[in-house]
Design a protein around this nucleic acid. Structure first.
Length: 845
DNA sequence: TTAGGGTTAG
């Protein structure tokens, strides 16, 4: 922009000056003494079209044009303003010397985003420029994200010998609110303090708040500026509240809102939008509801802007989507924001992805054009549904509307494929991205990590690290969750070591990921260490450690942590309650479980969801109260989903109750006739009660229906490698040694009293063969490998994709006694720590 | 001529 020469005259503008485009016929007989006043009246009452028509059909003073132009700017009718500029040129009136008119034109073009024309007009003014011209162009650049240009013009102005006023200062300070210009902003800051404009002008104060908040990212310094202001109005309060909410200080935003109201200032749509967004961020549904009633009292309940925040708050804070939908329906008008907010609300809540896509159709019918965020959310919905066909259609629509080169749309497509499990398509979409940013790379790292392809994940990680972008907290978090899902504690430790050097180690998000990684990798001690060292723990930190203790069978510790969390003033959410209830169920703490189940709504306003009911079914079922569990399921306020019935079926397996088991399996198969878990669990149930005819029948049915059960598999990490074993696996290079070790183990533990429990062999074969089958279970192969490839005192950590079998559980206890090695087994459900012949689960799992 | 807002891919 700076390359434009200041000698550019008005003649080179897109609108040629002084050359009338059309001759205007003026009726000389028309007596119009009050015409100017009429036009001005029309302009001031918002009838700008009429005003402009009148202007062209009669002769008018230049000042009249000027006033109508200002109306156009005030009402943001920029196209009309430009039309007026055209008419003015064609009127033949000379306005080269009219500084007020030219200044208005600079403002008009600046505000409409046409800085080229604005700068041309400014440059054409030469010596006639006054402080208003300078301020207008400085602010224009700043408003349009052209901070550098704004700063340069400001410097030119100083060189020119002009002394800046409050308008110039607030304009240039706004340009300095981006990190690349913040140093200059600090110089201006010193300047401003000396001039006294900080005390005398509220706009300058606001600009300074943003210099610190947005420029330096230092919201505390911004608050100091706010506190030092000798005078404040509703806008300054709102600005500070908004910055708090946007920069992750939502609690402070809510507090400041209360202070504002107490100080007698009236909250408007902007204030409510911000403080409600803060509540959404915090998940404070109760406070959000109170704010909602204030919104209604203020008469703002149909406002689109406030409505969007409210809608989002209900969607994010565990309120009902019905509330969101009602707010949406009551808005006085709908724009792209409100449609998108509703679509996003559906996507966020899970299970409403079809509704989101339906909303999109309605939006198109209402002739509202979607934006890039609408498309991002929609592609996310398609990813959730693993419906890449729909995703491709939506993406094509986005391309048609010109969003091909928009980062977030392309990235969403990559993510959509990754979530649909189509990694090759995801990779292709990534390769042909218009522009790859860190988020594009992070999507791939995360997808590879989730697909347990840690080599590719690390490969991309290294690519990012070696590029100019540099990795960020998200990259680390993805890798950590990848390490956690395979239980690769060695890889996790390596990442932790790299984190210590990276500067992200103290990041709350990363700390939480570390807690979860260590806990999922079986090292609950290290997980607690990370938790304990944290300075600011949030709900996710607490929930992670409670989940960790629960999964490791440390139910008492889980309960203690929950109590401490409440004492620390952190409000539990629905996920916390899943952790607390599952801790109870793992330890058979029935009374405690019921107590929590009842207080979650009474004391914390959290409505029990399907997963909470499943926990309670688990608690009842494991403790053997199978009939009560059935009654409980039938008393639920909504129909139980397959997860709940599967939980009951699992309990029937443990307690050998074929009758209820059959009922539960039937209920699952009603909803999903091909559910592999139902078939397998039922078959296992029959096998353990030796009803072999039924077993054969089910297996036959599965073959006919092409139902594939998940193959049992265990793995163990040594050094930097993960070794995977299937049942009867002989593919490992050290297979011979592993089987020899197993034979020796069998002898040793039998001496200690181990008796094979052949009930867990799910085939009808002779006893001796059964024992052989038993000793080829994948977790036994893994433990034998662990014994020969590592030494005391290192614990052996084994991971299994399914639940550990009863005989393997007994075996592990004896092996720990016979060898003196600690063994940790993570199955699909929880951890088992075997030490000296005992298991942390107390044989209750 | 100057200040504040809602949806946001990992």
């Amino acid at each position: 922009m700076m390359m434009m020469s200041t000698s550019t005259g008005i003649m080179s503008l897109p609108f040629p000056a002084k050359i009338p485009l059309k001759p205007i016929n003026i009726n000389p007989n028309l007596k119009t003494p009050n015409l100017n006043t009429n036009v001005i009246h029309l302009a001031n009452t918002g009838q700008i079209h009429k005003a402009i028509n009148l202007l062209t059909t009669h002769h008018h003073k230049l000042t009249t044009y000027s006033i109508v132009l200002k109306s156009c700017i005030r009402t943001r009718n920029f196209d009309l303003g430009k039309l007026l500029h055209n008419k003015l040129i064609s009127s033949g009136l000379v306005f080269d010397d009219d500084v007020i008119m030219l200044n208005s034109l600079i403002t008009l073009y600046s505000k409409s985003g046409d800085l080229v024309t604005a700068k041309c007009i400014f440059d054409s003014m030469g010596d006639r420029r006054d402080l208003v011209s300078w301020s207008a162009i400085i602010s224009g650049f700043a408003q349009n994200g052209m901070g550098r240009e704004s700063v340069c013009v400001f410097v030119d102005m100083i060189k020119f010998g002009e002394y800046p006023n409050q308008y110039c200062f607030s304009g240039v300070l706004r340009a300095c609110c981006s990190p690349e210009n913040v140093d200059f902003g600090l110089v201006v800051f010193g300047f401003v303090i000396k001039t006294g404009y900080f005390e005398s002008d509220l706009c300058v104060g606001c600009a300074l708040i943003d210099l610190f908040a947005k420029g330096l990212g230092d919201v505390k310094a911004a608050r100091v500026v706010f506190d030092e202001m000798p005078e404040r109005n509703a806008v300054t309060w709102t600005l500070m509240i908004t910055r708090y909410a946007q920069m992750g200080y939502s609690g402070d935003a809510v507090q400041l809102f209360l202070d504002m109201v107490e100080s007698g200032f009236v909250a408007d749509r902007f204030t409510f939008s911000s403080v409600i967004s803060g509540c959404a961020e915090l998940g404070w549904l109760d406070v959000g509801k109170q704010l909602h009633s204030l919104v209604v009292k203020s008469g703002l309940s149909t406002d689109v802007c406030v409505g969007c925040s409210l809608l989002d708050m209900y969607a994010k804070s565990g309120g009902s989507l019905n509330d969101s939908r009602n707010i949406f329906n009551r808005m006085s008008e709908h724009n792209v924001m409100s449609w998108t907010a509703m679509i996003t609300g559906y996507v966020l809540n899970g299970g409403f992805d079809r509704e989101a896509i339906e909303m999109y159709s309605n939006m198109i019918e209402s002739r509202v054009l979607p934006n890039e965020i609408t498309f991002s959310s929609l592609l996310k919905a398609c990813g959730n549904l693993a419906d890449s066909k729909a995703g491709e259609q939506i993406y094509n629509n986005a391309v048609k509307l010109g969003f091909l080169s928009v980062n977030c749309v392309g990235n969403s497509l990559v993510s959509m494929y990754a979530r649909s499990g189509q990694m090759e398509d995801a990779r292709k979409a990534f390769e042909i991205l218009f522009e790859k940013n860190l988020i594009s790379y992070n999507i791939l790292v995360d997808a590879y990590a989730k697909n347990l392809n840690s080599d590719e994940a690390f490969d991309i990680f290294n690519q990012i690290e070696n590029s100019e972008m540099g990795v960020d907290a998200f990259t680390y978090a993805s890798l950590l969750s990848g390490a956690a899902s395979v239980g690769a504690v060695g890889k996790g430790e390596q990442i932790h070591a790299r984190l210590l050097k990276s500067g992200f180690e103290s990041n709350q998000f990363i700390r939480n990921a570390l807690i979860s990684m260590y806990s999922k990798c079986g090292n609950i001690v290290a997980a607690f260490q990370v938790f304990n060292d944290m300075e600011d723990r949030n709900i996710i930190s607490w929930t992670s450690i409670i989940t960790g203790f629960a999964k490791h069978g440390l139910a008492q510790r889980a309960q203690e942590m929950f109590k401490q969390m409440l004492l620390a003033g952190v409000k539990p959410n629905d996920v916390t309650y899943v952790a607390v209830l599952s801790a109870c169920s793992h330890a058979g703490m029935i009374d405690e479980g019921w107590k929590h189940f009842h207080t979650m709504y009474k004391e914390h306003g959290i409505n029990p969801k399907m997963e909470h009911y499943a926990c309670m079914v688990d608690l009842l079922g494991r403790s053997g109260f199978l009939e009560r569990a059935v009654q409980f399921i039938e008393s639920m306020p909504f129909a139980a989903d397959p997860l709940v019935w599967r939980t009951l079926l699992g309990a029937c397996h443990v307690h050998g109750n074929t009758e209820i088991g059959k009922y539960a399996a039937g209920m699952i198969l009603k909803q999903d006739p091909n559910d592999p878990a139902a078939h397998v669990l039922l078959s296992n149930l029959y096998a353990s009660t030796s009803q072999w005819d039924h077993v054969t029948e089910i297996r036959k049915g599965m073959k006919e229906r092409n139902v594939v059960k998940e193959v049992g598999c265990s793995w163990i990490e040594t050094g930097n490698n993960v070794h995977k074993f299937y049942v009867g696996d002989t593919s490992h290079p050290q297979a011979r040694e592993i089987y020899e070790e197993l034979d020796q183990l069998a002898v040793k533990i039998k001496k200690l009293g181990y008796i094979p429990d052949t009930n867990f062999v799910l085939h009808n074969v002779v006893e001796e063969q059964k024992e052989q089958y038993l000793f080829q279970h994948s977790e036994k192969l893994a433990v034998a490998f662990g014994l020969i490839s590592s030494a005391k005192p290192k614990p052996i950590r084994i991971f299994k994709n399914l639940r550990v079998c009863g005989d393997c559980h007994t075996t592990m206890k004896y092996v720990s006694l016979a060898t003196g090695r600690d063994i940790v087994v993570r199955d699909s459900n929880r951890f088992h720590h075997f030490v000296n012949g005992l298991c942390s689960c107390n044989d209750y799992w």
